[in-house]
């Protein structure tokens, strides 16, 4: 009934805590591009790919009491942390295997910073256009990225894609 919500909750369960909505947005976008069965629609905004639908689903999960939201006290900016509640555990138990654990790919993404994931997701968003043009688009983002950052992100995508090729989704 709420399969799309269950997939988000399952991702959060896998990593324990997600620090920031922006980070979750970028993780879901990257996982979707790697073949994970997320159905949310993303468009581009000032900080890379973004889904209004995902943003609302996150609020719905909090309102149901399936996620616990807390303000990140270490951050000077407005930033929230999310973890699964007991009710959330029970909720996703009805959707076993909806997001299979795969080679630590989800974990690996969660260890990166939100701004690096913004860069990775933006490069993925522009993967249909020549690299030189997409580099220009990336430089126009609000977060300043160096050519070194871009090169690292491109290498990261190659590794992700290689890992994703081995995944099988039902």
């Amino acid at each position: 009934m709420l399969e799309d919500h269950a997939k988000i909750a399952a991702i959060i369960k896998q990593v324990g805590v997600v620090a920031g909505r922006k980070k979750l947005q970028k993780m879901v976008y990257i996982l979707q591009r790697m073949g994970f069965p997320f159905r949310e629609m993303f468009h581009f905004n000032f900080y890379g790919p973004y889904s209004d639908e995902l943003s609302l689903q996150l609020e719905e999960l909090c309102n149901f009491g399936f996620l616990i939201e807390s303000r990140d006290e270490r951050s000077t900016e407005r930033c929230y942390r999310y973890r699964l509640s007991e009710a959330g555990e029970s909720f996703i138990s009805h959707y076993s295997g909806i997001i299979p654990e795969k080679d630590g790919l989800v974990d690996a993404l969660s260890r990166e910073t939100a701004s690096f994931l913004e860069l990775v997701s933006t490069l993925l968003y522009f993967d249909q256009i020549p690299a030189s043009t997409s580099d220009d688009k990336v430089r126009a983002l609000d977060t300043p990225y160096s050519q070194q950052d871009i090169s690292r992100a491109r290498h990261y995508i190659t590794v992700l894609e290689r890992q994703a090729q081995t995944l099988q989704f039902s």
Partner: peptide
């Protein structure tokens, strides 16, 4: 069929998190 607020293509203003959206 369940229909949720997130299924509706419209939304109302929410300030969001820093750098989530403008």
């Amino acid at each position: 069929e369940v229909d949720s607020s997130s299924d509706c293509p419209y939304d109302f203003y929410r300030p969001g998190e820093e750098e989530e959206r403008l």
